[in-house]
Design a protein around this nucleic acid. Structure first.
Lengths: 318, 318
DNA sequence: CCAAACCATGCTCATATGAGCAAATCGCTG
DNA sequence: CAGCGATTTGCTCATATGAGCATGGTTTGG
């Protein structure tokens, strides 16, 4: 009880000092004179106020970041760069912030890439819409895996690459192919096509890569577009798939789950990402925590752009 | 659009600078070097971050106060002292904080009063329970208006005064009388009693006064104890009563609403509060905003102890 | 097209602050 | 109650910071 009393008194003193300092703008000297303390004691109380969390300093802005989490992620996973945006109160806003941060990251990229290879998805579409006109000058944007729809319907792969290129006053190189083919022979035939081979070659030599990952469930765009059935997805899940990267379904360790399916998947392989100098992985939302963990653990990216909750999930446990 | 872009860029810069300064603990010099800005510009951006509210510094502690509101209240109403505690998420906690603050105020009071006159009520009971043992030495605590119950049931006037006195190693002087009498003659007879007259005299010469106010509605302790009927309360309300101070019902301007009723009310008059060197008024909760406004406007207190919401209500409009 | 007001920038200098260290005080234990 | 370790306190000094001012660029109004 006496302990409590003393602790409460100290707390009270800390609170008074903090108020005078932060709210009233008084100097530590003045506070010392006022409360009959030495200037040093005031300074120490203020330091304690911050370590105890009595004084909380927060930066409230949609473009704020969590530098502490970023550092931890870089160290934990050997990333060249990590960008973590603070959690907001809605999943949409989280996606928007992550997309904005990814767009910023792309804009700041030095050296400016001459060729940028991109995958597709809702997340990247959001990134594209947050890119400013003139974010770069004359960047060639190459699609690096098969698209969900060959036509240019908004939200698809082609308009995405086109939008990014247009805003950089560059041009898009599209991959005119589905993501997954029914038969291996078809896939090989398409790959053998001069245009397609050229696109893939350009993608394989890109200066930078920008990609997301998908979850392995039946809301996936692969199911929507008929490349996979619900049964396929269930089977993949049964075999340990946590999601897809460039259309390739992987387990928690980043291994291809179904080599046969994978052989019918058109686009760059995961090794290309692993070997890239700059591979920016963008992800947002709780559903993608597992696949995100796989991507960073398997070293598929050099840069991670995500939200606070995902970052914390990636830093959990051993 | 260009404006927006520029503004957004500036915001972004401010956010980055603020993060490096407040989260990373870098010096303004270092940040300048890092972002290629002069040290001065960094300083200015930091200043703007605070004025814009991008950097928010808050003191989170049950005993924190709102010094800004306190100053405004002092200036607006010519108070010697105002104490405002931050709003919490519950009315009970608000009351607890206000009571704690009032107890602190009483403990800090200099010179220490030899005689302290008190009224009664839920709020003051809370104050008493937040007073530390030994908050003062040998204070005489005098009851200054009639109590709701003559016996010593907890929550009543007598145990309240007794508790405050005991914790100050002093003694209580109780007023053995109801708050409001049925007939004027009875009231005059009681007042004429040697003991009662002595108590009132002591109260009138107290060094400090501690009181609350009540709302004029049928949940009042006066109704509960049968001094007033629901009809009496309705009639008082109809005539403009906003609440009671020391059992005396007043309108928004602090005038006695019903002189006849008032003449049957036993205890010090409001003028005694107005003339006091130290009159501490304690109030918490939205229901009491109106009567609180009346008390401060009518200069019935020198010190106000209340919650943030009440403070804001008192500072609203012209 | 020029002037004038305004704002942003960088400077000097006085002041506020934190790091590191020595002295003092406190609280144990024998 | 002496001795010792641990914590607290106050100091010096180097550094970080903010106020006030002069300068240069930019917008606005004649």
């Amino acid at each position: 009880m006496c302990m409590t009393r003393v602790a409460a008194d100290k707390d009270l003193l800390i609170v008074r000092v903090a108020e005078l300092y932060y709210e009233e703008g008084k100097t530590q000297d003045e506070i010392g004179a006022l409360l009959d303390l030495s200037r040093f004691k005031v300074g120490r109380l203020l330091a304690q106020a911050r370590t105890d969390g009595i004084v909380r300093i927060e930066i409230v802005h949609p473009r704020a970041r969590r530098l502490g989490l970023e550092r931890e992620l870089r160290e934990r996973y050997g990333l060249a760069e990590a960008v973590v945006v603070p959690a907001s109160n809605s999943a949409e806003e989280d996606l928007r912030r992550v997309a904005q941060a990814a767009a910023d990251q792309l804009t700041m990229l030095r050296p400016v890439p001459r060729t940028l290879a991109v995958s597709w998805g809702r997340t990247l579409t959001a990134v594209a819409s947050n890119l400013d006109d003139g974010w770069a000058r004359g960047v060639t944007v190459v699609q690096m895996n098969g698209g969900v729809s060959v036509n240019r319907r908004p939200g698809g792969a082609a308009p995405l690459a086109t939008a990014i290129a247009k805003r950089a006053a560059g041009h898009a190189v599209l991959l005119p192919s589905p993501a997954i083919l029914d038969r291996l022979e078809t896939k090989q035939a398409i790959e053998a096509d001069r245009t397609v081979a050229g696109v893939l070659d350009q993608a394989a030599n890109a200066d930078a890569y920008l990609f997301t990952a998908g979850v392995c469930d039946n809301t996936s765009a692969h199911v929507e577009n008929g490349y996979l059935t619900n049964d396929d997805v269930d089977e993949l899940t049964r075999r340990g798939a946590v999601g897809d990267v460039l259309g390739r379904y992987v387990d928690a360790d980043g291994n291809i789950v179904d080599p046969e399916l994978d052989s019918r998947t058109l686009g760059l392989g995961l090794d290309r990402l692993r070997d890239a100098d700059v591979a920016i992985f963008v992800t947002a939302g709780g559903a993608k925590h597992d696949i995100a963990r796989t991507v960073v653990r398997a070293n598929l990216c050099t840069t991670l752009v995500t939200d606070e909750d995902t970052a914390r999930a990636l830093l959990e446990e051993v």
